[in-house]
Design a binder for these strands. Structure first.
Length: 272
DNA sequence: CTAACTCCCTGATAGC
DNA sequence: TGCTATCAGGGAGTTA
């Protein structure tokens, strides 16, 4: 499933393929994903894509009229830039025809993805991103920031790290991996974190996210890069999806807990 | 205000 | 073999 490194990988691949392109036709094969697709038939034709950015797990294609196409890959979203002659795959929901003869094609088996057009603010981003916390790889994501926001929060630290309003774009995989590396139990009450533990979380989150971006993301079942290849970070995962396997540090069997409705694998010996 | 829950969707897998 | 139940999960929405 795509998280920050996967979305970053896709956005970087899309930038050269889409920047400067004009969308001249929109073809729908489904009425809606998470939200209706029909409005795109009115808002996209004739628009030129001026830039491609990423914020949290969203891809933002800036348009030449002060709007932006905001794309979320959901759980199973795959974007391809291909020739129109290639037959439509079963779960391809929308084609955007480009002025260079290629087609932006969006496939999404579970339909948790979304494509919406929104006006942008002065910072070039739609208003919805105003409530988001800092990017984890930005200078604003510091131990002091995390510690400050953790005071008075009684929910589990894993849910805290996965909250876009706290820090943008960390999902289930990287929250689990970060907390394992930091030696912190994912069920731990957020307000009990020390400054030093916040420092460890920030350090390891940044290290792991950077490594995952270098590897082209993590492929767990569905994720594909724009060129169709799989992410190579999968082999570096320490705990995600490894319930019952020995802890890579101490050998004790990894355990599974459900936190905020999400499965969370951790080592009960190494994470306190 | 926070926190906990529910729902959306389909395919893979387990169990009978 | 074929059925049903369960699980995966981001984010929006609802409830307490």
């Amino acid at each position: 499933m795509p998280e920050l490194p996967e979305v970053e990988t896709v956005a970087c691949a899309l930038a050269p393929a889409l920047t400067g392109r004009t969308i001249f036709k929109v073809k729908l094969f489904s009425p809606a994903l998470r939200s209706p697709l029909d409005p795109l038939k009115k808002t996209l034709p004739g628009r030129k894509i001026v830039n491609i950015r990423r914020r949290a797990r969203y891809i933002i294609a800036g348009l030449d009229n002060g709007n932006a196409l905001v794309i979320h890959l959901g759980m199973t979203g795959v974007i391809r830039i291909e020739k129109p002659e290639i037959p439509r795959r079963k779960h391809e929901h929308i084609f955007l025809y480009l002025d260079d003869g290629l087609v932006f094609r969006f496939e999404d088996v579970r339909r948790f993805g979304s494509l919406e057009v929104h006006p942008v603010c002065r910072n070039g981003l739609p208003e919805m991103f105003g409530s988001f916390g800092p990017e984890p790889l930005s200078a604003a994501f510091t131990a002091e920031y995390l510690f400050g926001h953790s005071r008075g929060v009684r929910s589990a630290v894993k849910s805290f790290l996965m909250d876009n309003a706290v820090v943008a774009g960390i999902g289930n995989i990287y929250a689990a991996e970060t907390l394992f590396a930091a030696g912190i139990d994912p069920r731990r009450e957020t307000e009990t974190l020390t400054r030093d533990q916040c420092r460890k979380i920030v350090k390891h989150a940044r290290r792991i996210l950077r490594a995952a971006i270098r590897a082209g993301g993590t492929t767990v079942s569905d994720f594909k890069q724009v060129d169709g290849s799989e992410g190579k970070f999968t082999v570096f995962l320490q705990v995600y999806g490894k319930k019952g396997k020995p802890c890579p540090v101490c050998g004790f069997p990894l355990e599974l807990a459900r936190i905020g409705g999400r499965s969370s694998v951790f080592c009960p010996k190494c994470q306190k």
